[in-house]
Nucleic acid binder design. Sequence first.
DNA 1: CCATCATATTCCGATAACGGTATGCGTCAA
DNA 2: TTGACGCATACCGTTATCGGAATATGATGG
Lengths: 116, 116
Amino acid sequence: MAAVARAATTSDAFNAIAEPQRREILALLRAGERPVTALAQELGMTQPGASKHLRVLREVGLVRVRGAGKQRLYGLDARGLRPIHEWIGGFEQFWNESFDRLDTYVQDLKQTRQGE
Amino acid sequence: MAAVARAATTSDAFNAIAEPQRREILALLRAGERPVTALAQELGMTQPGASKHLRVLREVGLVRVRGAGKQRLYGLDARGLRPIHEWIGGFEQFWNESFDRLDTYVQDLKQTRQGE
DNA sequence: CCATCATATTCCGATAACGGTATGCGTCAA
DNA sequence: TTGACGCATACCGTTATCGGAATATGATGG
């Protein structure tokens, strides 16, 4: 039984990129593959910290690893970002229209006075 | 003194859309404003559940409220999605290129044998 | 003012996410 | 084999998140 509490969380790309540091990792990897230590150093995080974030990114398929001797080179696999881009693209027409709607909203606000 | 544990989390759009139910809410709101109860019902969640997700969405500016008599109509404000769309757009050129790189990766995999 | 409907908030328990430190494991060189 | 290096994992503490139920707040109608 036990309450379900907190449904599915990590383990999808949406969640993976919700973490600022993971976004930084992805951004850096656009410049090319890198070993863990380099990433950690460039982003100012501990090595275990980097490894853990990389694990998440690997599990959702946003990065891949390649053993290179003693090192493990992490590389970007951006394909997993595409579904997200498309999902958000479905709102593209709205983030202009939103301005218009906002007018009505603001007008209404003046009377209602429940703004935030 | 006191471990930092879990840095910034919620309170930005990336995190807001990391939640599946919140994505559903946003998707639904494209069809127009809705009172809380309607959302809860259409998405099969409890009223407090809906209210809580709406609160998060409101705090990051992805929805706005409008008092309509006894009800509160929630409407989409998609502008906050634009930065995300742009951030991901910065990877667009890579999710094709990734295929190519994948070849080298797979080849390497055959020798290294550390594939997951 | 009171009852009622719509919504927000609070309290709770369970969980998992993050950061840090310590440690384990694999690989390479000697 | 041993030691050093690179990286992954385990463990710990802290905090935040999510879901659920109960309750508080707000607005409307009578």
